[in-house]
Amino acid sequence: MVAVLGTAGAITLLYHGRVQPLGLAQAGPRSPAASPSPDDPLTLACRRPAVPGTGTTGVAGLWETERGSIAGYRAHERFAELTSPHEAVARTDQLSGWVLVAAGNASIQIQTGCIAVDVRNLNSVDELPGFNTADRDQSARDMLGSRSHPFVVFEPYPSTIAVDPASAAVQHIQISGDLEISGVTKPARFALDVRLQNSQLTAAGSTTVPVGDFGVQVPEEVGGFVQVDPHITLEVSLILLHSRHPAVAANQDGSPLQPS
């Protein structure tokens, strides 16, 4: 009985402090962030398309990520010294990107987009008694090959999304696109909650990927110091503001964006 109670107590201790998934950011007054340098690595990873800015408040146009956007990962791990599993969580606010959309009566059309996350700045935010979870951060960066491939990049496919652009309610969507991790690109689909409120577009959600498909090797050996499930959840909470000024860059390959 003592052993059972002890095990239950350990499980309660480990899960009591579980980091909650990223949710929708609160809408509030925001000023657009200062334009980054053209030589900024994140800007180069997601070049903004050369489309004119608008003075309208509609949904159509270019939406850019703003301060307060966050991305990260969640991974299930099991330590040899512990009887219960643990969830590793790391996050960063070092990301940049944009989405170009057109609007219909009861839908929006994603024309193109790009979100880049700097994995060199991922920092653990979970807690585990007796362990310094920050010790895993450099190992995670090495497994992701961050020296050669510092960014995880998602580029959505052109698609029509069935949402009401006039509604301020939370709406649920799925967006498919190309996901690049460690220099390898594979299709992925994010399930997202989105809300358009106070001239802000917020989105939060996740996708789970088998990182081995991207050439990322995690410790899976049973009986090792730590065993990690290779199915890793990527999560985001994005804040996007409508661009009100002319864009200055081009498509990902540097060519001008062609109207559809």
Rank of each mutant, 00 (worst) to 15 (best):
R147K: 14
L100D: 12
V211D: 08
E180N: 11
S176E: 10
G130V: 01
Q171N: 10
D213P: 07
G183S: 03
V184W: 01
G130L: 04
S148K: 14
A102D: 13
R189A: 11
T112A: 15
I232A: 09
A162W: 00
R195F: 03
I232K: 01
N105E: 15
G113V: 02
D164I: 01
S159H: 10
V152E: 02
D137I: 01
G97I: 07
H231R: 12
G183M: 05
P187T: 08
V226A: 12
L100F: 12
V216A: 10
T112L: 07
V209L: 10
Q171R: 08
S107E: 02
P230Y: 09
T185D: 02
Q227Y: 00
Q174A: 14
V170D: 12
Q94K: 14
F225L: 14
I175S: 02
R147Y: 09
L100M: 09
W98R: 01
S159Y: 01
P219I: 08
V226C: 09
I181W: 03
S107Q: 06
A191K: 12
T202W: 06
L100A: 11
A168L: 05
P210N: 15
R189T: 15
F151C: 01
A166E: 13
G97L: 04
D229K: 06
H231T: 01
G205F: 12
T92Y: 03
V211Y: 11
